[in-house]
Nucleic acid binder design. Structure first.
Lengths: 101, 101
DNA sequence: AATTTGCGTAAGTAAATACTTACATATATA
DNA sequence: TATATATGTAAGTATTTACTTACGCAAATT
């Protein structure tokens, strides 16, 4: 059972959960309301996101509020950035080439 | 059978393939040599990467050279960028806060 | 012409994934 | 105190995934 960020964000439902809690923390039921799948299914997704360090759970009475943790997403950002640097430089080359025509 | 970039890059072997061909195009056997798994396994990974539009296959005689296609990776970059903007702004807030102490 | 090389693909398989329903438990409310 | 609410978790299941071995075929080499 792999538990890394890339695996975590591979699932569209989990990406949507991330999107939901990115700008406001929500409790589990509030999150589950946004989806067609059952509440336990969402609970399991949140467990995975938690294990991957993508969110934090703040217990408040019987409610559990999910707060985004961006740090792990930076791993993805860094992985992409190395190629981004390359495709940008290739774009620069192209622009220079066009400018010199 | 889902065929999207996030699914494609979820697998560590496929990420390594992307890394291998990012800066030079390689034929299938050259790629397979970098891994412990069998050649057909790599062939299947490349098929998936191809179907996801992450690489291009240039046939040269009996060889097939794999060339990276960055476009699809930009989808990932964009997905990350929306959060990146947010965590950067939060970082700015923190820095301002510290500067004003 | 015979052989080697580079590759795709089919079939089989163990493990992982994403879901379900059913149930358990702690906290809040009436 | 009885009930409602918010949630975790176990068990079962269909599907997907990542791999293997075996085979086939076209292009290159001998």
């Amino acid at each position: 059972m792999r538990r890394d960020v890339f695996q975590a964000i591979a699932d569209p439902t989990r990406r949507e959960i991330i999107n939901l809690i990115a700008f406001q923390s929500l409790n589990l039921n509030a999150i589950a309301d946004h989806f067609d799948v059952s509440r336990p299914a969402i609970s399991q997704h949140i467990k995975i996101l938690n294990e991957c360090g993508l969110l934090n759970i703040r217990q408040d009475g019987r409610e559990r509020f999910c707060e985004i943790k961006f740090d792990r997403l930076k791993e993805v950002a860094n992985w992409i950035a190395q190629y981004q640097a390359f495709w940008n430089s290739k774009l620069d080359d192209l622009e220079r080439h066009l400018a010199n025509k």
